[in-house]
Simulated scan of single mutants.
Amino acid sequence: MKTSHSYPFFGPDGYDGLDALLQELAPSKTFLLVDSNTTHCLSVFVPKLGQLDAAFEVLEVPPGEESKSLEVAANLWSVLLEYGADRNSLIINVGGGVVCDLGAFIAATFKRGIPFVNVPTSLLAMVDASVGGKNGINFAGLKNQLGTFTQPNYVLIDPDFLTSLPQQEWESGHAEMLKHALLSGTNWAEALQLEPATLALYEIQQSVAFKAAIVREDFKETGKRKVLNLGHTTGHAWESYAAVSGNPCTHGAAVIQGLHVALLLSGLQDEQYALAKRYPWIKVEDDALTPLWERQLQDKKNTRGEVRYVLLEELGKPIWDVQITREQWTQAVSALNSAS
């Protein structure tokens, strides 16, 4: 198996490169993983690949975070065994963040690792889930508790998939682009004004390139890569709490909540106000404070039972492993509630 790629390939050239990889790998069996929302993408994707094995199998999972579970993973491993998959088989993940996360985890763990390709179809997956080599599933009601660091063999980004993207899915991807803009400090004002109808390819490429550069520097997240968790400590807690409360939200909506908290804790009131004008803070009720904090105590980035945050000294100057107490967090949430 050839060295995997951490940087994506875009558009027509990306299809040519994937065709070349298919010819090089000559997989014994090829599996296309989709969910019921992205099955229709195959009618566009498959005809563009002359080297794709005509006898490929389609594996479809239900859409949504519920599919990032041990049960779904076990079912997929069983199906791979039933179809006679071996270490030279290939999985191509065609879908959003859930499909890319799940499919990469399946590939990384089946027979100790088989080749896989990510073909993100949502903005969130293009600028986040498909890039960086993280994969995983949820466990015990907590986000991404089981997973690996495994780079895909190839990432193909085709912006044409975004033409029918629902507004909520656009906002999920936009949240990650805003996070990258805060971290880089180069295009915060411009990123706030992005709209789906006018989103340009170079803007996607800029966001992807920022993340890819950090990943190359710190693949296993022992240092600088931790900055990519900006907004995600509160964000993941909010997302998992919303799910068990019967009022699920998108990953992006949860990250926006987390960015509000991180900006306030960083003392960047102007930036938090600008964010609120585009994406208002959602008030946190008093009875949600304890379960939200308890979920943050389970965050993977914590050390010695202390909740650790990524904050900003200023735009473009992130700091990580900042200990935040429950009192500090509660005061920030209270201030945001009062201002909303």
Score class of each variant (00 low, 15 high):
154 Y>E: 04
142 L>P: 01
133 G>C: 06
191 A>V: 13
107 A>V: 09
170 W>Y: 14
233 T>Y: 13
199 L>D: 05
101 D>S: 09
225 R>W: 10
182 L>R: 13
212 A>S: 14
131 V>E: 05
133 G>I: 08
118 N>G: 10
232 H>I: 01
213 A>D: 15
180 H>E: 07
150 T>C: 15
111 K>I: 04
93 N>P: 00
141 G>R: 10
174 H>M: 09
172 S>P: 12
203 E>G: 03
108 A>L: 02
186 T>V: 12
225 R>I: 04
151 Q>K: 11
232 H>S: 02
128 D>Y: 00
167 Q>M: 11
211 K>G: 01
122 S>N: 07
210 F>T: 11
163 T>R: 06
227 V>I: 15
146 L>S: 00
226 K>A: 12
209 A>N: 15
115 P>K: 13
109 T>E: 05
174 H>C: 00
177 M>K: 05
179 K>R: 09
147 G>R: 02
180 H>P: 01
103 G>V: 05
112 R>Y: 11
111 K>L: 15
170 W>C: 01
186 T>I: 03
109 T>Q: 02
98 V>K: 08
202 Y>T: 13
146 L>V: 14
221 E>W: 09
213 A>G: 08
214 I>E: 07
97 G>K: 13
229 N>M: 03
136 G>L: 07
229 N>G: 02
221 E>V: 00
196 P>K: 05
233 T>D: 11
135 N>L: 04
180 H>G: 00
230 L>F: 07
162 L>R: 05
204 I>Y: 00
103 G>A: 12
195 E>L: 09
114 I>R: 10
172 S>Q: 09
187 N>R: 13
225 R>D: 08
173 G>A: 04
138 N>F: 05
222 T>A: 08
166 P>L: 14
210 F>A: 10
229 N>D: 05
185 G>K: 14
107 A>Y: 07
188 W>M: 13
87 R>Q: 11
193 Q>R: 15
161 F>H: 15
185 G>S: 12
222 T>W: 04
203 E>P: 00
